[in-house]
Design a protein around this nucleic acid. Structure first.
Lengths: 183, 183
DNA sequence: GCTGTTTTGTTCATATCTCAACACATGATC
DNA sequence: GATCATGTGTTGAGATATGAACAAAACAGC
């Protein structure tokens, strides 16, 4: 990774937080580039140095968030299946503002971020399906993945929107157990 | 006022917060320029674009804070004497991190900021002494000012350090009453 | 339709910040 | 005293952000 210039990092962080704030206040389509620039305390032109328009900005914001998740996938993949989810739920808690806003925001139709997240989750589950014991012999992979994926994403959203009523470890263990049954 | 470039404002704000944080953790003399740069997430060289050294930085930080106070002096001077202090205590509450850190920090000897603040307060009180009714006819201005000034500053520090147990309006009214008796 | 207002993208010259490197001082350790 | 590590202050080239201006679009109200 060629280290990124400090100023770019700060600009992107400011933009991310600005978008999160604004999206929790109004519909994304009603947000103007000027709004974002003002909230991020940046010159409007600066945004165009990095993004095509506000949709590109949102896209790349989501991209980088998904990528962070993807990096965690590699970092710890074959741990004990019951502890494997702990870092994820800690991550969700740290970024709960992003997740809650993006998952619940109703731009037009169901959240674009949910779609992206679901796709990523399903891709990660693909290689975890039990194809040996025979317990899934009369089930299609498609069905299993869609089932487990939506369940997982739905649970994440519920947990965050409800104010994270259980600590990350508790969520992680239970999710691990349920997924192990489903996959 | 020629408007200041956004970047300068951000840099100064970041430095201010960094210094506040660090001073609440360790003695100012033990704080290194690199510490400040790291905490402010700035390049070390950037600090030298604005300040001679860390002492100059602290000086100018204090300067600007005192100047903000001075601007409030002009904004509303001859209101009702019992309400006049409300904006000040609201200001103290907003900046309580700065005031508590600067007032209680023991660089070497008593706080430099306290000295500066006291001088400013006394200067503001000078024209408020009652020289007509005769109630102060056998008192020296010096004595009155030192008395009222230290009392005021001491009360501010107590209020902030104690976690601001009374709302600003309550403090303002009582301080107004007490100062009216003293001046 | 037309008209005034807002938002958008883009451009340019300039200001500020960054990064890396440097020489020098300070202080600790042997 | 020599050596090593750490902090300082400075420099230079380059990268990024700024502010201001502009034309074109998008949009509202009439």
């Amino acid at each position: 990774m060629p280290k990124v210039d400090r100023r770019i990092q700060k600009t992107q962080l400011a933009l991310k937080n600005a978008v999160i704030e604004l999206m929790s206040e109004k519909d994304f389509d009603q947000i103007t580039i000027q709004d974002i620039a003002d909230r991020a305390n940046l010159n409007r032109g600066t945004i165009y140095l990095h993004y095509q328009d506000k949709y590109d900005l949102l896209d790349k914001l989501i991209d980088s968030q998904i990528n962070e998740l993807a990096e965690m996938d590699e970092w710890a993949c074959d741990e004990d299946w019951t502890d494997a989810f702990i870092p994820y739920f800690e991550y969700f808690r740290q970024n709960h503002l992003f997740f809650s806003t993006m998952l619940t925001s109703k731009g037009s139709g169901p959240s674009y971020f949910r779609t992206r997240l679901l796709a990523h989750v399903i891709k990660g589950f693909e290689r975890e399906i039990d194809r040996e014991s025979g317990k899934n012999s009369n089930l299609s992979d498609d069905v299993i993945l869609q089932y487990a994926g939506t369940a997982y994403v739905g649970l994440i959203e519920w947990w965050i929107v409800s104010g994270m009523p259980y600590p990350p470890e508790v969520m992680a263990k239970q999710v691990g157990a349920l997924l192990e049954r489903s996959l």
